[in-house]
């Protein structure tokens, strides 16, 4: 594990490296031979059909899922050891209406919720923490509902607060599992642009699982495409092509580029023609 010192200088800018990684669930290989290298500050999308293993991939990066073979190195340490510097947004997490805790409290947990002890509502530390929380809520544009019980605001509003929670500790890496999931189109673009801004201004590495690549397509440095137990990495232009996806899926897949730059994948097994077709009338030209 610790024998890759020769490239120490290069290591410092590598945020994530996976070598020959494989994961098994329920005794079966979900994906294998994943070789991936992400530079610090890159914006990476993880794509693939339902059940392809996207969420499992990010859990492996967080050390929440053990590899069957291979290795993962995150922010210079083995998976799971640098999680203090990672902001994580799990998939489809909503709070039901019985949760009587405010949005600000949930965001605050992202700041210091893992520390032993208890939180006093007064004092200098509390004031400073409140200020940090207020600022990050402002950044994601959730100020108007952050004081309400989180179970009583809409799914999209909850999602913005959860993004604030992932951002509040100024992480070096953001891992977002379908963060645009419950958002309408204007909000998808707004959140995608916000995440790109954070990525650029603070040099944060972003791994984003996405079902629809189009809202983030203009921002991407790399895509990781999972299908049929195999993985393909590269720039969007390299990977999201008819030939590459046909090889990956081992069945004919066609990638169409609309005149405004959106991509439509046709013939994708399991998740039929998802990319972009839900929103035929959106955004101006990207590419």
């Amino acid at each position: 594990m610790s024998n890759q010192r020769p490239a120490a200088a290069a290591d410092s800018t590598t945020a994530l490296r996976m070598r020959g990684a494989a994961v098994e669930v329920g005794g079966e290989v979900l994906w294998r031979d994943v070789d991936l290298s992400v530079e610090a500050g890159q914006f990476v999308a993880i794509l693939g059909a339902n059940g392809a293993g996207k969420s499992t991939l990010v859990k492996a990066v967080l050390g929440l899922v053990q590899l069957a073979s291979g290795e993962v190195e995150v922010l210079g340490s083995p998976a799971g050891q640098a999680n203090r510097d990672i902001g994580y947004l799990p998939q489809r997490r909503t709070f039901d209406s019985s949760v009587r805790v405010r949005g600000v409290d949930v965001v605050r947990l992202g700041l210091d919720g893992d520390r032993w002890g208890f939180t006093l509502p007064w004092g200098k530390n509390a004031k400073r923490a409140r200020e940090i929380v207020r600022q990050v809520i402002d950044v994601v544009g959730a100020s108007s509902y952050a004081q309400r019980p989180i179970g009583q605001i809409s799914g999209g509003e909850q999602q913005r607060l959860l993004i604030a929670q992932a951002l509040v500790r100024k992480p070096k890496m953001l891992i977002l599992d379908e963060p645009l999931d419950s958002l309408d189109l204007p909000n998808q673009s707004a959140i995608a642009a916000l995440i790109k801004r954070v990525c650029q201004e603070q040099g944060v590495t972003v791994l984003m699982v996405a079902h629809d690549v189009n809202p983030i397509l203009p921002y991407l440095d790399q895509v990781v495409y999972l299908a049929g137990g195999a993985v393909m990495c590269g720039t969007p232009a390299e990977v999201i092509t008819s030939e590459k996806l046909t090889t990956l899926y081992k069945s004919p897949v066609e990638v169409l580029r609309a005149s405004d730059g959106r991509l439509v994948v046709v013939g994708e097994p399991e998740a039929p023609a998802h990319h972009g077709d839900r929103h035929a009338h959106v955004h101006g030209s990207h590419a």
Binding site: L64, R93, V101, L109, T119, Q165
Partner: peptide, 15 residues
């Protein structure tokens, strides 16, 4: 505090 975290938001707390 960690108990509160685990109670409200166990996935992120675990991470």
């Amino acid at each position: 505090r960690p108990l509160f975290f685990a109670s409200v938001d166990s996935d992120v707390a675990a991470a």
